[in-house]
Design a binder for these strands. Structure first.
Lengths: 300, 300
DNA sequence: TTAATAGTGTCTATCAGACAATATAGG
DNA sequence: CCTATATTGTCTGATAGACACTATTAA
């Protein structure tokens, strides 16, 4: 097309003369929530090992938040999409490229980084811990897997004539070896006629850098939601697994105990049995299952 | 704290000397999906008017995509959060500040804007059409409300030994007066052991600028999902409404017909009856309801 | 035999889809 | 009385929670 605009420029001329610097330009980072589920060693040979949900954090060696723990992440470069930047970071941190990854939310508060204006696109990735062990040849210094806990410990609802205010306080705990990090996150949902606002703020955070406690809490909520109606849990499993192991992953993420019979009924269509069994367990061996590729519900 | 880093700088000194320009800086925009539901005039005085879902679009007057229609939006400035930027845009376009708004997704492909590298945070806003009529004193030139349709017209599933590929084709139509815009969006979900990827691409787009067809399709899916399990639909309603009007809003968004009795049972707890009735309808008058602030399920 | 897990059956309450029946304004 | 919508009732099948019961291994 050779049509011209008000300045008499064709599209080619316009694009060639376009000056991006006339608009504010800012930094964009991707921050990764990399989750896995690990098994604790068990002393009793008969008992099954306890599982826990883990999150990868990096210890900061420089200001700001020096010595505190932060989500792995980095700046998006001009030549890569934000998804590509996230994959690149993932590869750098875990040395695995092909794992489940999804965008969570983009955090854009003005003062969220004391250095400069930084907008952060957060992503969640899920890894099977076994494949991580093999591939993670190069250990990133000052990186550690923290056991994650997130509990709703206060809920307050106020009903007004035309709406309501719902306030929830979550306690987030992250622990690893001698490290104990914690934070309190407050979410407030205000509903009035024609006005609904949801805010999420950090009430208190110790040892967790930037606004990352908030991002972590958001990610856990998303994970808990999605595990209920999608197949994402299988990204945390090896190819073959017992139904009890699968149930433990659900329990660890949802932070509740589930009834065996009901759980099995619920995930029945998502798995296919193999002809293999576990051995040497000190009790009845269990059948190994794998994901059923014929299962399908929704695209997202 | 006066602790110093490797360069011997305290936190204050570090922040004072921090040079943001060492990292790539890019432009970030907010693009708004502003939805409303309007009623078509009906000739038969007895019949209820037809409803339709509408989306606000702006006609571009400059390159690139000159004369095509785009989502209202603009650049995020250094001094405002991305949420604030979205609210500002909303106010500029609809002249209403206090309406429902939520962040959708952030689009970061390298070449999504031919001018320069632009990352786009998309937001969805819902407005009751009645309050819009009153407040929209200043009409934005070249802005128009388009009737939106989005239909899944092809679905293909291929099962592989270890996973599956699900491909869906959606047809998006936007129409207003003499304008007819359309696009085809392809979403592909590939599930293999340990690797799940979801991609969304525009197969064909006529009259819709940039990658906005994809953003619109994403927003409609989100709206359809959320209307099923949250109270967002009430943001599209006046304070008092009949249950049939509410049902029509659900039908228009979900693009299906619902059975009256079942719909009423489903939303029973979300509404409270008033002692008012409609009048002069040519048939049995209906009770007016309002939102029940005591209803509550989830925060998000 | 026993400890510990594996796996199945079933009762009940709840919820969604389908459809039928009754009610009531204006003309 | 007629038309078009308002409102309620109920049958059925699917699903979730609770709980009880049987099966099987290694030591």
């Amino acid at each position: 097309m050779s049509e011209t605009n008000k300045q008499g420029l064709t599209e080619e001329q316009f694009l060639a003369s376009y000056d991006a610097s006339q608009y504010d330009r800012l930094s964009v980072t991707v921050d990764m929530l990399i989750f896995t589920v690990t098994e604790e060693e068990e002393k009793n040979y008969r008992r099954l090992p306890e599982k826990s949900l883990r999150l990868l954090l990096i210890r900061r060696s420089n200001h700001p938040y020096k010595h505190q723990w932060a989500l792995p992440g980095g700046f998006v470069q001009l030549g890569e999409s934000i998804d590509e930047a996230a994959r690149r970071k993932l590869k750098e941190e875990t040395n695995i490229g092909d794992i489940y990854m999804e965008q969570l939310y983009t955090w854009g508060d003005v003062a969220r980084d004391p250095r400069t204006r930084v907008i952060c696109a957060s992503y969640m990735a899920l890894v099977d811990h076994a494949s991580l062990q093999i591939e993670a040849s190069r250990q990133v210094a000052d990186a550690a897997w923290f056991t994650v806990g997130c509990k709703l410990y206060q809920e307050q609802k106020t009903v007004t004539p035309t709406g309501y205010i719902l306030q929830q306080l979550f306690h987030l705990t992250l622990s690893q070896a001698d490290q104990q990090l914690a934070a309190t996150i407050k979410t407030v949902k205000k509903v009035e006629t024609k006005v609904t606002t949801v805010t999420r703020e950090i009430v208190e955070s110790s040892g967790i850098a930037f606004d990352h406690a908030k991002i972590i809490e958001y990610g856990i909520q998303r994970l808990r939601n999605k595990i209920e109606y999608t197949d994402i849990a299988f990204n945390l499993m090896p190819e073959r697994f017992t139904l009890t192991k699968l149930q433990q992953v659900y329990e660890v993420i949802l932070d509740t105990e589930l009834l065996k019979a009901n759980f099995r009924r619920k995930i029945a269509d998502m798995v296919v049995e193999t002809d293999e069994y576990t051995r040497d367990a000190g009790h009845r061996p269990s059948k190994l299952f794998k994901f059923n590729p014929k299962w399908m519900k929704i695209i997202e």
